[in-house]
Amino acid sequence: MAVQFLRKASVWIKKRKITLLAISCMGLFSTNLSYHLFPEQTFKLLHECWSGGQPAELSQKLYGVFQDVLQDTDVKSTNSYRAFAASGFLPVSAGIPWLPAGSLVGIPPNFDSTAEDKKGIVDHVVVINGKEVDWDSNEGIALKEALTFSLEAQKFAIAREIAYLRNGSPLASAIVAPACLAGTFLCGRVIKLHLGLSSGPMILRGLCNLITAAGGLMFYYLSYDAMTYHLDCKADRRAATVSKDYAKGGVEFYDKILSRNRILRGLMGKQGPKMYAPSGNLFPRYWFRMKYTPYTYRRDMIVNILRELQA
């Protein structure tokens, strides 16, 4: 009974290969793009900062900084970009600016902090390895310093999120998976035709499919990491070239991130070296993958941009 069912299913799938491939590709694309299509209903709920049981409101100061960045980056349709108070310590963003839902940029509360007033940091409880960070300890003081950004660094951080969205990065990132799936399918068919396996033994066809699928998966990982690297660098470059002040802010921004990560590496005990490299980069490699664009590379790239702007 089971064998007969599998045979019928196999015949049904063979007759509808292209249709199933198209549906699968569209499903992958839609899934990857879902929270960019509906950022208010998905992304914002996930990243929104709460205070006293209510969503926190973005301060007038940070709202003004956000508007200044929109003006500095020559954004014409400013209504397509909206800011909100985000949790965490770094800006986040989602959305597609030219769609009706627009895009959102989350600005963290520590951006309200200054060298004199760090309430945006110390008002938050940070727990590492089950222990609350003592902001008055040596590590706590160093962490506060690493989480305090100048106005130029804040503007750069917000500008790079806006640049990321303006570049169509969500679309470019979302298309990688369906493109690799379609490419793997087509390569599998070509290989089987070339080797004469289309009507060959089922075991050989299955082995060919398995090898092709493994190759396709590896190609997807490499392609996705390369796309992430390209989009991150493109957004950084676009934000840094706004002006010298933005470039200086970019250097400070990544210096502070690296400093923060080195501090966290020490505070997290055994887990620290698993997450952060000694330089402060996120742990760079998973076998053949590089899932994150190194912060050191991004900082050095902006240093070179700053030199060109100052020349």
Rank of each mutant, 00 (worst) to 15 (best):
Q4H: 04
K8H: 04
K8A: 04
K14V: 06
K15A: 08
R16Q: 04
L21Y: 01
F29T: 15
S30P: 11
T31P: 01
H36F: 10
L37F: 09
P39D: 13
E40P: 00
L46R: 15
P55G: 09
T73W: 00
T73M: 06
D74I: 02
K76Y: 02
S80G: 10
S80P: 00
A85N: 08
P91W: 05
V92H: 01
P100T: 13
L104E: 12
G106M: 14
P108G: 05
P109G: 01
F111Q: 10
S113I: 11
T114Y: 02
V122M: 01
V127H: 01
K131I: 06
V133S: 06
D136T: 11
S137Y: 06
L143E: 02
A163K: 13
R166C: 09
S169T: 13
S169Q: 06
S173E: 14
A174P: 12
A177D: 06
A182K: 08
L186E: 09
L186M: 14
G188T: 13
I191D: 04
K192L: 08
H194G: 09
G196T: 01
L197C: 10
P201T: 04
L204F: 10
R205F: 02
C208M: 14
N209C: 13
I211M: 14
G216F: 08
F219I: 12
R238Q: 15
A239H: 08
T241C: 13
V242L: 05
D245T: 11
A247M: 07
V251H: 03
F253Q: 02
L258G: 00
N261G: 12
R262L: 06
Q271E: 09
G272A: 05
S279Y: 05
S279F: 05
K291Y: 10
Y292R: 08
R298A: 12
R298N: 11
R299Y: 01
L306H: 13
L309S: 15
